[in-house]
Simulated scan of single mutants.
Amino acid sequence: MVDWDLAISLGSRIAGTGPVLSRADAAAVVAELHADADRSTGLVRDFTGLETAAGTAPVRVVDRAGWVAANADGFATVLAPVVDKLTAKKGPPTGLSLAIGSRVTGVEVGALLGFLAGKVLGQFDPFHPPAGRLLLVAPNVVHVERELGVDPHDFRLWVCLHEETHRVQFTATPWLSDHLLGEMHALAETLEPSGLLDDGLGRIVEVVKGEGSLIDAIGSPEQKEIVDRVTGVMSLLEGHADVVMDGVGPSVIPTVATIRTKFNQRRKGAGSLDRILRRLLGLDAKMAQYRDGAKFVRSVVDKAGMAEFNAVWERSENLPSKAEIADPRAWISRVL
C-alpha cells in the first residue's frame, strides 16, 4: 500500500545533502560522533544508574539519505498493523488502485521524511531488530553547530549524550519497545477507514490556524486515550534525556550553558511555513514533551532520588500517564 522505494528516493531528494565537507573533514566528524557516543554510555550509566549490556543496539552515523532509508524501514514496521487493519476492512488493493495508490502514499511519506531528514540530529530506532539502533545524522549536526556558532566538539558530545540516553533507556528496559509497538497495534484496532475522511479536511484547516492538534482532527475518544498514553511515555523519554544532558553536561562540556540557550531558541522554529508544518507533524507537541517531561523527572528525582525514580523502568504499569507528567506527586503516590 506504500511504494517505499519511491518514498526513499523522493525523501532523499527533498532532504538534500546538507553542508559541504571535504572527505577528510567528513571522516573526522563521523569518527568523533562514534567516539562521543561510546563515551556517553558510561556518563549516562553513572548519572542514571541504568545498566545496559555491551554490544546492544549499534550506533550508526548516517547522512540524510541514510536517515530517510532507515526511517522508511521503521515506518513500515510501525504502520504494518494499520495496513493490516485497513486491508482486512477493505481488501487488498489491486490493479490500477494498487499502482496509483501506493505511489500516492509513497509521495506523501517521502515528502514527510524529506522534510524531517534535514532537521533530526539523532534518533533511537527501538523497532530495528534485534534490540534497536542509534542513528546520528552527521550533516545535520554540522549544520546546526555552524548555524548556532557553538564549539563543534562540545556540541557533538552534547547531542550524543541526549541520543545515547535514549539508547540506554530502551536497552536497559527490553520490554519498552514491545510496549510501544503494542500501543500501535491497539491504535490500529480502532481505525475505521471512513472515519478518516469525515470532516477531516475542515478539522485539519483548524489545526493550521492553531486550533487544536492533528490528533484532535482525526482521533476518536478511544484513539485519543491511546495517544495520551503514548504521550506520557514519550514525554518521559524526552524529558529524561534532557535531564541527563543538563546533569552531565556541566562536568564534561565547558560551553554547555551557551549551547542550551541557543538550542532552546532554535527549537521554537523559524518562518510561518515551518511553524505550520511543525504543528501538523506534531513537532510543537514534541517540544512540549521535552519541557513537561524534564519537569516531571526533576520533580520526582528531587523528592525521591534517582534510585527511586528508576522504578519507572521496572514495568509498563509504572510508566506515567499524560496526566501524571503534569502532576508528578500523583505518580509518586501511585508508584512509590
Rank of each mutant, 00 (worst) to 15 (best):
L10Y: 05
G11D: 03
A15Q: 01
T17F: 03
P19Q: 01
P19W: 00
V20C: 01
R23C: 00
R23N: 02
D25N: 05
A27G: 14
A35K: 11
A37D: 03
R39E: 09
R39H: 03
L43G: 05
R45A: 15
T48L: 11
G49W: 12
E51V: 15
T52Q: 15
A53E: 11
A53H: 09
G55F: 00
P58N: 01
V59W: 07
R60G: 02
V61P: 02
V62F: 04
R64Q: 08
V68G: 01
A69L: 04
N71Q: 13
N71P: 08
A72F: 07
G74E: 12
G74K: 05
A76T: 00
T77F: 05
A80Y: 04
A80C: 01
A80L: 10
V83H: 06
V83Q: 11
L86K: 04
L86P: 10
K89Q: 15
P92Q: 12
S97F: 13
S102D: 03
E108T: 04
G110L: 02
L113M: 09
F115A: 08
G118Y: 07
V120P: 05
L121Q: 05
F124M: 10
P126V: 09
F127D: 12
F127H: 12
P129C: 07
A131I: 05
A131V: 13
G132Y: 12
G132F: 13
L136H: 07
V137M: 07
V137D: 11
